[in-house]
Structures are given as structure tokens and as C-alpha cells.
């Protein structure tokens, strides 16, 4: 097998290992659209990073965090329904990113690559970034696991029990931003959310504990990456979308498998 295929598989599996547990939380906390909105702002982060002369990953993290804070502030005011706020910010952030890219003629951006991912052009540098960022995010998630579960079950209960609810919510948003920054180049900002939620949704029926679901989601994600990358090579298909289609097929198939309850 060629090196670039191995790198693609390694990168995809690294992201899937992170996306499994993170995506499970996104599903449990009903934050799929929230994650999507943050992902859509990533392009703006890339251009801002370029403008400020910092690493695009930092730019993406920065913009995601700012957007997350704005979202929380707007949702607390309750002047508009939550999905309306998300819809406004999601598409505005994406369009701002596209406009910014067009303005900066000196910035040569592989736009399609950012939007839909380019898993077959992963470099050794990217791999390092994915595994370093992924390990950091997973370690943080493991550290906060039980407390995040408590906050997910009920925020008031968590507050009465003395948990720092606001800090935990912020930490979780930061983790989502980290996932987006890490996964952006591989599956693309338009498709990141699918890698978070589809494997997790497929894993739900086979799990009896949160940990089982997180681990199984990671395995399903890796299977989707492998199937997607290989079919992309075989039939010359776009990499990112192939991975998502593979995940979708896996999700459909998982619903056909009978599960014994009890």
C-alpha cells in the first residue's frame, strides 16, 4: 500500500477515535446543530489565522470559542428560539468565511478541500497534529467524563451538587472546537458533524453504558473511514464524502441488526 493511503487511514482512524466519544456527548446533549454551527465558522478561522500570521488551527479554535460564547449569550437572552439563533450564525459564519477568502487574493486556499476535506493528501505533519490534538482532547474528556455526564443529565441537579456547570459547559465547547480544528482538513467543515453523530447514533442500539457507546462509536467511525478511503481510491471518489456515505450505510445497516433487550 502506498504511504499516502496509510497516512489517510491513520489520520481518519485517529479522528474517529476522538469523534466517537465526543460525538456521543454531542448526541446526548442534543448539540448536533451547535457543532455544525461551530464547524461552519472554521473557514473564517483559517482566514483570520492567515491575516494575523498565526497557525490556522489556532485561528479556528479562536473563532469557534468566540462563536460558542456568542451563542450561549444569545441563547440565554431567549429573544429568539435556539434553532433560529443557530441558523443565523451558522450560515452567516460560513458566508463570512467564503467572502473573506475571496477578498484575500494573496491567500491561496484549497476551498473545496476545506469544505469537503482532502483525506488523501494528509501529510506527516498533519498526522502529528491530529494525534497530538486528539490525545489532548481525549485526555481532557476522560478527566471530565463523569462530571460532564452529570451536567448532561440535569444542570440544576449538577449545580445543587456543587459542580461548576458553566465551566464544564465551556470546557465541552472548547473540546468541540478542538475536534473541529483537528478534523477540518480531513473531512471538511461541512461534513465534520456527520463524523461526530452518525457513528454515535449507530452505536446507541448496541450499548448499555455510556462508555460502551463511546467506544463502539469510535470503532464504527474507524470502519467508515477505512471503507470510505478504500472506495474513494477504488472508484476515484472524493474522500470526505465517501467516508460520510460509508458511515451512513453503516448506520442504516446497524438498524437492521436485531438487538436482544434485557
Amino acid at each position: 500500500m502506498d504511504d499516502f493511503i496509510l497516512r489517510a487511514l491513520a489520520a481518519g482512524c485517529g479522528i474517529a477515535a476522538l469523534a466517537g466519544p465526543m460525538g456521543s456527548f454531542v448526541v446526548w446533549r442534543r448539540m448536533a446543530y451547535f457543532g455544525d454551527t461551530l464547524a461552519h465558522s472554521a473557514l473564517l478561522g483559517v482566514t483570520l489565522g492567515f491575516l494575523l500570521g498565526v497557525d490556522p488551527t489556532l485561528g479556528v479554535m479562536g473563532v469557534c470559542v468566540v462563536l460558542a460564547l456568542v451563542l450561549v449569550a444569545l441563547q440565554q437572552r431567549r429573544a429568539l428560539a435556539s434553532d433560529t439563533v443557530l441558523g443565523i450564525l451558522s450560515h452567516s459564519a460560513l458566508s463570512l468565511g467564503l467572502v473573506a477568502v475571496a477578498f484575500l487574493e494573496t491567500l491561496r486556499v484549497d476551498l473545496i478541500g476545506y469544505l469537503f476535506g482532502d483525506i488523501l493528501s494528509v501529510t506527516a505533519d498533519d498526522l502529528l497534529r491530529i494525534y497530538a490534538g486528539g490525545a489532548l482532547a481525549l485526555a481532557l474528556l476522560a478527566l471530565l467524563w463523569r462530571r460532564l455526564l452529570a451536567v448532561t443529565v440535569d444542570e440544576d441537579l449538577a449545580r445543587v451538587e456543587g459542580l461548576p456547570v458553566t465551566a464544564l459547559r465551556l470546557a465541552f465547547m472548547l473540546l468541540i472546537a478542538l475536534v473541529i480544528a483537528v478534523a477540518m482538513k480531513i473531512v471538511g467543515i461541512l461534513l465534520i458533524t456527520s463524523l461526530l453523530i452518525i457513528p454515535a447514533a449507530a452505536a446507541r442500539r448496541f450499548s448499555r453504558t455510556p462508555e460502551q457507546m463511546a467506544a463502539l462509536a469510535a470503532v464504527f467511525g474507524m470502519a467508515a473511514v477505512a471503507a470510505g478511503v478504500l472506495s474513494s481510491l477504488r472508484w476515484d471518489l472524493p474522500g470526505g464524502p465517501s467516508v460520510v456515505v460509508a458511515a451512513f450505510v453503516l448506520f442504516l445497516a446497524s438498524n437492521l441488526v436485531p438487538v436482544r433487550r434485557g
Binding site: L149, V153, D156, A158, A200, R208, T209, P210
Partner: peptide, 26 residues
């Protein structure tokens, strides 16, 4: 304080047994 809220809406996607639920806070 031991607080018992009026209701609790735990998302159906979260696989959680009663035993596991009880151990979430400490």
C-alpha cells in the same frame, strides 16, 4: 442538600442504568 427535582428529561440516546445514574455525582 439532597434535591429531588420535579422531573428529569434524560435523552433516550444516553444508555444509563439506574445504578450508573446514581453514581454520576460522586
Amino acid at each position: 442538600i439532597g434535591y429531588m427535582p420535579q422531573r428529569l428529561n434524560i435523552d433516550a440516546t444516553l444508555p444509563l442504568t439506574v445504578r450508573r445514574f446514581l453514581g454520576l455525582w460522586r
